[in-house]
């Protein structure tokens, strides 16, 4: 189990409401003839922290990229906060401005300073006045503990710092849901902790989160549900304690034995 989590997680604000945040029904996706996502059914309630695990190529990243339409699904329904994702551009814009996303390779804009990275979308998408956007950005940069780097360029920061900026950048849009696509996979071991800490802090404040990650320690400490995917389908989902201690499916057992090791 990962040693990255070494503090007590405060569960007091993590409350799951009955309001549906994301509703996926019968969703299917193909790349050409390759069936990447098969009959996905998933309902995420507000305040849930979901970790999606699975071997590489199992479709986990594709699934969360469908949620903000970076990938287009071909059949079924996805609705986010009551907005159905169709090819209607207005709906797509609405969903994207309410869903934040953090990528494996950060994808910060290298030609803009950290602060400009954070204020870009609020100014141009939300039409926030610059001053206000900057104040918000500084607030979130303080939250991810790098306010002093605000005027540097992404290239001048370490990987961990960059990923925290990426998180702050998403938060500046005040999203209702955060998607994390393997946020720690491209980081050196000593930097994973600082990013996970930020994510835990976010969870403690009650953010709805879906994380694709291999950090099983994070899953145990924070998630209220773990989903295991293989070959484009959801194989098993359960509470973390059940999932880790009492896996039902053979595939899950095999995966856990490989990933948790000896």
């Amino acid at each position: 189990m990962s040693e990255a989590i070494n503090r007590q997680v405060d569960h007091s604000h993590m409350q799951v409401s009955d309001r549906v945040a994301i509703d996926i029904r019968n969703m299917n996706k193909w790349y050409g003839t390759f069936h990447v996502l098969r009959d996905i059914d998933l309902t995420v309630y507000q305040g849930e922290r979901i970790v999606i695990a699975g071997p590489s190529g199992s479709g986990k990243s594709t699934l969360i990229r469908c949620i903000n339409r970076l990938e287009e699904h071909q059949a079924g329904h996805i609705s986010v906060d009551g907005v159905e994702l169709t090819s209607d551009i207005k709906n797509i814009d609405k969903v994207r401005s309410e869903v934040g996303m953090v990528f494996q390779h950060f994808n910060l804009f290298p030609h803009l300073t950290v602060l400009e990275n954070c204020t870009l979308a609020p100014i141009w998408v939300r039409k926030t006045p610059r001053r206000e956007a900057e104040a918000t950005a500084m607030h979130f940069l303080e939250k991810v503990k790098i306010p002093d780097q605000a005027h540097k360029y992404p290239g001048q920061l370490s990987g961990g710092q960059q990923q925290r900026v990426a998180i702050a950048r998403s938060l500046c849009m005040q999203p209702k849901i955060m998607l994390f696509d393997e946020p720690t996979s491209a980081l050196d071991p000593e930097m994973i902790k600082e990013v996970l800490d930020t994510m835990i802090q976010l969870a403690e404040e009650g953010m709805t989160m879906i994380c694709v990650t291999h950090e099983m320690g994070f899953a145990q400490a924070v998630a209220n549900r773990v989903i295991f995917m293989d070959q484009g389908q959801i194989v098993e989902q359960n509470t973390p304690s059940e999932f880790f201690n009492n896996p039902k499916s053979e595939r899950t057992k095999l995966f856990l034995s490989q990933i948790l090791g000896h």
Partner: peptide, 15 residues
């Protein structure tokens, strides 16, 4: 330019 730049711009809701 890496694909990620396009994706990040999309994910932020920029048209």
């Amino acid at each position: 330019l890496p694909r990620g730049q396009y994706e990040a711009a999309d994910a932020l809701g920029l048209d």
